[in-house]
Measured scan of single mutants.
Amino acid sequence: KLPPGWEKRMFRSNGTVYYFNHITNASQFERPSG
């Protein structure tokens, strides 16, 4: 389970998975720990 605010997303163009935090508007490719 991801830390609060984080969700898994995917770029439609190339299928790359990334993680987005809707609380802080942060995004990263590494899976957030917590």
Rank of each mutant, 00 (worst) to 15 (best):
1 K>S: 14
2 L>W: 03
2 L>C: 10
3 P>H: 00
3 P>F: 01
3 P>C: 08
3 P>M: 02
4 P>K: 06
4 P>Q: 06
5 G>D: 05
5 G>M: 02
6 W>E: 02
6 W>F: 01
7 E>H: 08
8 K>L: 10
8 K>V: 15
8 K>Q: 12
8 K>D: 04
9 R>L: 08
10 M>L: 11
10 M>V: 13
10 M>K: 10
10 M>H: 11
11 F>E: 15
11 F>M: 14
12 R>M: 13
13 S>Q: 12
13 S>E: 14
13 S>D: 13
13 S>I: 09
13 S>F: 09
13 S>T: 11
14 N>A: 09
14 N>S: 14
14 N>E: 08
15 G>N: 08
15 G>T: 08
15 G>R: 04
15 G>W: 04
16 T>G: 08
16 T>L: 14
17 V>H: 10
17 V>G: 05
18 Y>K: 03
19 Y>H: 05
19 Y>V: 00
20 F>K: 01
20 F>S: 02
20 F>Q: 04
20 F>M: 01
20 F>D: 07
21 N>D: 07
21 N>F: 06
21 N>Q: 05
21 N>A: 01
21 N>E: 06
22 H>W: 14
22 H>E: 08
22 H>R: 11
22 H>D: 07
22 H>M: 12
23 I>L: 10
23 I>H: 11
23 I>T: 08
24 T>F: 06
24 T>P: 03
24 T>A: 02
24 T>H: 06
24 T>V: 02
24 T>D: 07
24 T>Y: 05
25 N>V: 08
25 N>Y: 07
25 N>M: 11
26 A>V: 14
26 A>P: 01
27 S>R: 14
27 S>E: 15
27 S>H: 13
28 Q>R: 02
28 Q>L: 03
28 Q>A: 06
28 Q>I: 06
28 Q>F: 02
29 F>A: 13
29 F>H: 09
30 E>D: 11
30 E>Y: 02
30 E>P: 06
31 R>G: 03
31 R>D: 11
31 R>Y: 11
31 R>L: 09
32 P>E: 01
32 P>H: 01
33 S>Y: 13
33 S>G: 13
33 S>F: 12
34 G>V: 11
34 G>L: 12
34 G>N: 12
34 G>Q: 11
